[in-house]
Amino acid sequence: MSLEIIEIILRSIYVSGTATLLSAVWSLPLGLTIGVKNFYGKRFVKGVFNAFLGMPTVVLGLVLFLLIRHAGPFGFLNLMFTPLAIIVGQAVLITPIMVSFITSAVESIDSDIRDLAKTLGATEIQASLAVLKEATGGTLLAFIASFNRAIAEMGIAYMVGGSIPGFTMVLTTAIALQRDMANIELGLTLAAILLSIVFAINLTLNLIQKRKP
């Protein structure tokens, strides 16, 4: 395998992995809050996140393109055609997945735990963390499903990443490019690698689900 291919694989993992971690920064508190709190319009909020589960990546890619291009409102950030642009885009893309998964994981935990923690003198945040701790399996599931969606998407990587060789080219855009360059063998190799990554992750996901009590 050439160095270039290894680089593309590593870049894909890095970009989508970072996007997953970045998304967690806001998705974890969001999912947790929606899960444990009862508030007016809760069903509506959950419905919105569920609706965006199927967000077409090209649509998000186009919106982001318009926002971060040099002439756009966020042009001063110089994000266009950088790995960071893909990371931010994918982080936004997977937010609904992460929030929905975490919300259901938290909801499946008995609410007694929170009440118990509070009775024992825990603050609101400490009590929520106790719930999250019980929902670790579901949370991990959220991370894996999110990473899976991110690494397999192409619209954002193409539109705001630009698929620049040696800089922002990831597995999905590389596969498309190999078709355009008539390198079918290399395209198939890359496709096999992407499939292996996605399958391996799905397998882990299934194992976790199975072991969940």
Binding site: R11, P83, T136, G137, I208
Partner: peptide
């Protein structure tokens, strides 16, 4: 599910991501 296993899995994920990131960005 064992908490430690989850923790190790999360640690491995974070490690893989950061190692990949460092290798890619150095260039």
């Amino acid at each position: 599910m064992e908490k430690t296993e989850t923790f190790i899995a999360a640690l491995i994920l974070a490690a893989v991501v950061s190692v990949a990131g460092i290798i890619v960005s150095i260039k």
